[in-house]
Design a protein around this nucleic acid. Sequence first.
DNA 1: AAATATTTCAACCGCGCCTAT
DNA 2: GATAGGCGCGGTTGAAATATT
Length: 268
Amino acid sequence: MGRQPCCDKLGVKKGPWTVEEDKKLVNFILTHGQCCWRAVPKLAGLRRCGKSCRLRWTNYLRPDLKRGLLTDAEEQLVIDLHARLGNRWSKIAARLPGRTDNEIKNHWNTHIKKKLIKMGIDPITHESLHKEATPQVDQALCHANDQRDMEVSHAESPKVYGSISSSTDSSNAPTENSSTTDESRSSDPGDSDLLMSTHIWSETFLDDSFWNFLGTRESCSKDIGLPTSEDINSDQWLLDYKDFGDEDFGLGFFSGTDMNSLDMGGCH
DNA sequence: AAATATTTCAACCGCGCCTAT
DNA sequence: GATAGGCGCGGTTGAAATATT
């Protein structure tokens, strides 16, 4: 079937979003909720394609997003899920609350892929690149591949590679470019993430309601059962969210939750 | 300090799936 | 059942940031 372009290409702006555009988009969504994306740019006064608006919101503006590098635990989970699900980034992202498919995809391509290759593991098949690889790894890989197509929600979360992030950096690959910058960025992810989010939002939204909302994000999360940054740093949330299904966690949070039911400090 | 190479990641594109008519 | 329209996904691109020479 033929497809029409998602928007009128004429007069549609492309490229990086400005603070002003971000502000318009978030104000609109927080006021009206997520409706038909095609209509959003017109209603919000944006010269953007609806698709672009959805992407910007999903990948960058959603208030429940974590920012910063993936933690070791998250990275481990991504590898494990990738072994079973392949490049189904949205499915993987659904199991990492606060992370987007785009973010995970990028992290995979820029960091994890290299680590696996360095360890002699094919990042596509998750099989050993060299047959003489350590038996432990081979066994683990077989196990992972066997389970690749299993229903994830019913499978245990095997630590296929052990702690690949730390072990790769510290022992298996001593030449790894674990620069101090990266280390400092990845350490204490909870606080730095929150700070980054706060920075982004503070640049964009200066009215009290947004600040109140930011201030209650963590408590909101706890109230409605979302994992907080604390939880993300432990493995406990893996157990809690394994059976979450395929819904996009973040979007579901907003579409499925009455914004008014959250104590957002007078957002509306 | 400047030039060049490499890495990172936000954003775009095209396609497939789903739903309404 | 066929068609149209909207949304979401995965792959790719390119500008900016960072590292290296």
